[in-house]
Design a protein around this nucleic acid. Structure first.
Lengths: 140, 140
DNA sequence: TCTTGATCCTCTAGTGGCTAGAGGTCCTAG
DNA sequence: CTAGGACCTCTAGCCACTAGAGGATCAAGA
């Protein structure tokens, strides 16, 4: 367990420059280096990076992840805060799904109505030009 | 119809700095100016900007919009290209919805399993730390 | 031991789509 | 003629990376 950055990358699915970026913004602690100044990682880093990656995949922002990591590091505290981060996030996800679904409907209609003729008859262009007011506010 | 930028903004719902930004990246042509160097817009700009806004609301990227605008400007051409831009976009939307739905499931489970006790019992941290491999690739 | 080439290093700049702010000019109503 | 709101340009910042230059290091084979 004395992994160079490329191996850490392979094991976690996080790209090498991204790992260095996470270190730079303080999400991942600076690891020890070899004599030749290369980073060497251990098991805790693999786990932490997996946590980060998974959180990102779930759509958490870096600031959220920072909070979650801090909480994880102090198991005395109540998990009420983690719970509320997740709940807020859930609400946001629902909003996004709803918005994307509405959008999907509109796009589908557009595509289906496209007669594959000339632009002047094309519903896609028409819809985009005309519907000045009819779409609800957009996600994120 | 000799609108200052603020009035164009009010009529289209696009913020003033954003209008200037669109001009800068060539999405909106540079309008004529007053003697005092202030922009004055006409009806075509209102329409073009509405087209842009609506397209953005539907999630099209600026490059897509550029193409769509070019197509709209040549009504002789076939709308095959517009169709394919819209279809690609639809595919992407579907991917995002699927990913968000999966994510929603996992978050819901996390929140439900959280016993509101101490962090050490809190599944939120655990789930995010452990499930290294179980989420499919993430949207854009 | 030497060489090769893959991997590593730092640093800067770019991405998309805006948004914010500084510091100044113009326009219009009273 | 003046006040203050709207306008101007310019630069920098946001988020979460990504790309590339230009060079150093490491490990395996000859």
């Amino acid at each position: 367990m004395n992994l160079p950055i490329g191996e850490l990358s392979r094991r976690t699915g996080v790209k090498v420059p991204t790992i260095r970026f996470y270190e730079q913004i303080g999400l991942l602690p600076s690891p020890p280096r070899t004599e030749g100044n290369q980073r060497r990682y251990g098991k805790p880093e693999v786990e932490r990076l997996n946590f980060i990656r998974h959180s990102r995949e779930l759509g958490f922002e870096v600031e959220d992840i920072r909070e979650l990591l801090d909480m994880a590091a102090s198991p005395q505290a109540s998990c009420h805060q983690a719970d509320s981060i997740a709940r807020n996030h859930l609400t946001e996800i629902d909003r996004r799904i709803a918005s994307l679904t509405a959008l999907r409907g509109e796009l589908t209609r557009m595509v289906e109505e496209c007669g594959h003729g000339r632009i002047c008859d094309c519903r896609i262009i028409e819809v985009l030009a005309d519907h000045g007011e009819c779409v609800t506010e957009h996600a994120h």
